[in-house]
């Protein structure tokens, strides 16, 4: 007996949110950026704030984030997204403002802008994608590249004695009085992606209360830069990135610091 199709509008339980555009994403197969974009878009959708949100795109792989996120956006110079977001939020304090930045943008060239925006407690959300590599320029060492990890500018592996140590900037900004909610998530499994979406939603809700900067780090993969297939890269991320960048809340409202980021590293 032929099965009766259940595909009908009343049975639809999940489709791409309208806060994403219909444009095809340019990211490499399996890259976490697409999922991270969508979790942010779903958080905006669930809160019903699409028309009150202004985002800031970085320089890096997500330089074209405004092709995909269906909200008003500004494209910032490399590393300057927190300064641009400061300018937006100061003149339009009633809007929801976020930056979406990679590790090179946020933790290398934009370190000063990141730390000072967090220290002033600017009321916006920073979404920080940490995949430990410069993806856009072809896989060079990032401020968050793990010790011993290979990249095109540390082909023998990162030697911390000459190249410096990976920067745990999320733990660093959690120390600042201006940050309100700081958490580290991932989007590589359904459970993790749902948690990341909840974190971003919470962070956007806090923005209404003017409590300070919220930072949601997403530890993510870079299959092309890491030279692995997507499934392998997610496994490698669990085994190597998570011990150094442990998932979970780092600073939560009402409790303050709940993690020192030292587990396992």
């Amino acid at each position: 007996m032929a099965e009766q199709s259940i595909i009908s509008p009343e049975n639809l339980v999940y489709k791409k949110t309208g806060v994403m555009t219909d444009r095809e994403l340019h990211y490499c197969p399996g890259c976490g950026h697409g999922t991270a974009h969508r979790m942010l878009a779903e958080a905006i959708d669930e809160l019903g704030i699409q028309s009150e949100t202004i985002g800031v795109a970085p320089v890096g792989c997500s330089v074209l984030a405004y092709y995909y996120l269906n909200v008003d956006m500004q494209e910032a110079a490399h590393g300057r997204a927190p300064a641009v977001a400061t300018g937006i939020k100061r003149v339009l304090p009633e809007k929801y403002v976020f930056t979406y930045q990679g590790d090179g943008d946020l933790a290398a060239i934009g370190t000063a802008e990141t730390i000072h925006a967090c220290n002033r407690g600017e009321n916006f959300l920073i979404v920080f994608i940490n995949n430990g590599i410069y993806g856009m320029t072809g896989g060079q060492m990032a401020p968050t590249t793990l010790p011993g990890m290979k990249s095109s500018t540390c082909p023998l592996g990162r030697d911390v004695l000459t190249m410096g140590n990976p920067l745990k900037i999320t733990e660093l900004v959690a120390q600042l009085p201006g940050t309100y909610y700081v958490t580290r998530q991932s989007v590589h499994t359904p459970g993790n992606a749902r948690k990341a979406r909840r974190a971003m939603k919470k962070a956007l809700e806090y923005q209404k209360e003017n409590k300070g900067t919220c930072v949601v780090e997403v530890v993510s993969n870079c299959p092309s830069g890491w030279k692995m297939n997507p499934v392998e890269s997610n496994k490698w991320m669990e085994e190597n990135m998570f011990p150094f960048y442990p998932l979970g809340d780092i600073k939560v409202p009402g409790k303050g610091l709940v993690s020192d980021g030292k587990n396992g590293s």
Binding site: V13, E24, L25, C31, H33, P190, R194
Partner: peptide, 24 residues
């Protein structure tokens, strides 16, 4: 035909290519 409509596949799909239906 074992799909339960849990949407796990759709949630992790970086390119959002999957729509999910479930009998409620």
């Amino acid at each position: 035909s074992d799909c339960t409509g849990c949407a796990n596949c759709a949630i992790v799909c970086p390119d959002a290519v999957i729509s999910v239906y479930r009998v409620k």
